[in-house]
């Protein structure tokens, strides 16, 4: 895979080079010539696309070549081990998502999320509640009311996932007990929402876009702390009266003991990259919400996310 990654990185840095001239930005010096960005997702998967897009725009601000390396398998465990074994000199980073926290908690991994150092956060993926457009539900309250009077049928994309956790937290907050059915991914879930088997599904915008644009799906609420920029009319779950908010984070982590000069460069660079108009155009269509969390705060954020998830898994008996 390395060989493919290099080929694309070359292409990426070429296109970035031409863009550099347009923006007339001077990239800051970086102690490493080549930076490897590791992901557990396969080429074309969520984190892979995230990194490849980012690798196109980073060279405008940091003087280095960015390479994406796919380390698949073990639900992210192998990628974390790859990172933990790498030198802490800013040459290797890993794309973090909640997956790596779940894997660390659910299996005896050689290296867990506590063995690596969160660097900075870039984005939040919007988690939304949706229903079929010709269905009876117009607001989240309608769904909760139905769950109160009869048996509600809710769906989550995967078992042991943030979506499942979101559905369970909403259940608790609203004091209802519908059946929450886990599926084999977003597509499987969407079919069962569209054909009326389920009242609602909890999922992410990119999976829903085809049906959203075709007008077959109605968004009811988002689990984001604020309303989504792309859908300003959709309320948050909190606004609908249920105190639940989630952040499906996307950022980078490095090996433990990153030097301060490295983390400083990234703390300065990330807001600049996120403000890049060309990059904004790309990530806005994917409904990614820019959510920069600097190095010193990101540690606490990840630890907090980890312990919340651990408590949830323990309370529900998934973890002994």
């Amino acid at each position: 895979m390395r060989h493919l990654a290099i080929a694309t990185a070359v292409a990426a840095s070429l296109s970035a080079w031409s863009a550099t001239h347009a923006v007339a930005q001077t990239p800051v010096d970086y102690p490493q010539k080549v930076v490897t960005l590791v992901t557990h997702s396969s080429p074309g998967g969520g984190s892979d696309v995230f990194l490849r897009e980012m690798a196109k725009h980073l060279p405008k601000y940091v003087k280095a070549t960015f390479i994406v390396e796919n380390v698949q398998g073990g639900s992210g465990a192998r990628a974390i081990s790859r990172l933990a074994a790498a030198p802490a000199d800013g040459s290797v980073f890993y794309a973090t998502t909640p997956t790596y926290i779940y894997t660390s908690l659910l299996s005896k991994v050689q290296h867990g999320y506590k063995d690596v150092e969160p660097l900075a956060n870039f984005f939040t993926d919007s988690e939304v509640i949706y229903t079929r457009a010709d269905g009876p539900f117009k607001t989240l309250k309608d769904v909760i009311d139905k769950a109160k009077s009869t048996r509600g049928r809710w769906g989550a994309a995967n078992p042991a996932s943030l979506e499942r956790q979101a559905a369970e937290q909403l259940k608790k907050a609203a004091g209802v007990s519908p059946a929450v059915v886990s599926h084999e991914g977003g597509g499987d879930l969407m079919i069962n929402v569209l054909n009326g088997t389920l009242d609602i599904g909890v999922g992410e915008i990119p999976e829903l876009r085809p049906q959203l644009e075709a007008g077959k799906i109605r968004l009811l609420a988002t689990f984001d702390p604020q309303r989504m920029e792309a859908f300003p009319a959709i309320p948050t779950v909190k606004e609908s009266g249920y105190p639940v908010a989630l952040e499906k984070f996307r950022g980078l982590a490095g090996p433990k003991g990153l030097p301060a000069e490295i983390t400083k460069i990234w703390d300065e660079t990330v807001p600049k990259v996120l403000a890049d108009p060309e990059y904004q155009k790309v990530y806005k269509t994917e409904s990614l919400v820019p959510n920069f969390i600097p190095h010193d705060k990101y540690q606490g954020f990840i630890q907090n996310f980890g312990s919340t998830t651990e408590t949830f898994l323990k309370e529900s008996g998934v973890l002994k």
Binding site: G73, G74, S75, G76, A77, R78, T103, L106, S107, K108, V109, N158, P159, A160, S161, R164, V181, S182, E184, G317, V318
Partner: peptide, 19 residues
Amino acid sequence: TDPISGVTRFTFGSPELLG
């Protein structure tokens, strides 16, 4: 991983078997 509840089955703690 159990398709409904998400608990692990017969993985003996190995992340290789989660999927």
